[in-house]
Computed example of a mutant assay.
Amino acid sequence: MILLTGATGTVGSLVARRLASSVPLRLLTRDPSRAAGLTGPRVEVVAGDLADRDGLLRALTGVRAALLVTADPLTHAHDENFLTAARAAEVRHVVKLTTLSVTESDATDLVTRWQRENERLLLDSGLSWTLLRPRAFMSNTLGWARSVREEGVVRALNGTTAVAAVDPGDIAEVAVRALTAPENHAGRAYALTGPAAVSPVEQTAILAKLLERQLAFVELTEDQALSGLLARYPAPVAHALLESARRGRDGTKGHVDPTVAALLGRPARTYQDWAQDHLTAFRT
């Protein structure tokens, strides 16, 4: 049995779809109704919360490997609770999704520090582990979909700064390998990037070509970007994300790592590949 946290999220849902027909699968979610599209004869959906250690123990009973995705940078309790329950349930292997910025000494924002500590908790837990450290998700550009559809405009910060963003589908495929063959991936930390660094201006041009329409790029000021972040996240998290974006201007996030291609036996997917698959989100 494999258990997935974050089963209705960006990466977790893709892992679920890849595993649903091949192994017994348990999906842990606070709202089981959101997992309606992920059901199958070998899939069990259970309601649970990472704040509930007893509930986690029940969910992890009988599980041999688990994907751990946490999403609240204001607490380490979720990782602590999960790992405590995983040890008690005798889970053999944990695959943890963090971020590539944990490897960068100049990355000191709240979110990166939170993920560094989460990694430490796992490494100190005594459990077998694999760390997945992706760069920014290509799917983050879905945040542009409404303005593209309604105005033909992309608004973003750092328009000319290239980032080696990764297709979440590639992350999911690496996760599947680590979950189903942990003996081949135990004790490994994988840097996961796309095959090239691409800037928001270049992503806008790719979308325009695929959509066969003109799109304008508008550079946001830091104040405008922060205002948008504050509408979605608690203030400490919003400021951390802005700090991370500011740091990326030095080109650090443009480094391409070959790990995805090495693990999957094929090139990492490009932004154009990802955009082609998600073009309906941007169409009028």
Rank of each mutant, 00 (worst) to 15 (best):
T10F: 00
A240K: 05
G48Y: 00
T112C: 05
T259C: 14
G55K: 00
M138W: 05
R58V: 03
E90S: 15
P195Q: 02
L279K: 13
P73G: 07
V237R: 08
L56C: 04
E183G: 13
A261L: 05
G37Y: 04
G55A: 03
E173M: 10
R17Y: 03
G265F: 06
V111R: 02
Q272W: 01
E44I: 01
T84A: 15
V148Y: 07
A7T: 08
A51M: 10
I171Y: 03
V218N: 08
P32W: 00
R266F: 04
A238Q: 13
S22G: 13
G12Y: 00
L207F: 07
A51N: 13
G169M: 04
A172M: 04
D54H: 05
A197C: 09
G265T: 13
V163S: 08
L210M: 10
V63D: 00
R246A: 15
A189T: 09
T180E: 08
W129A: 10
L179Y: 03
D31C: 03
P267H: 08
L97E: 02
L3S: 01
A136S: 12
S128Y: 02
V154E: 01
A89C: 10
L83N: 00
A191T: 11
P41T: 10
S105F: 09
H78R: 12
N118Y: 01
A172I: 07
Q203K: 13
V256I: 13
G248Y: 01
D124G: 10
R17Q: 15
P41F: 04
R92S: 14
K96L: 15
L38A: 10
H239E: 14
V111T: 11
P200I: 15
R87D: 05
N81T: 06
Q214T: 15
T98M: 02
E151P: 03
L210D: 13
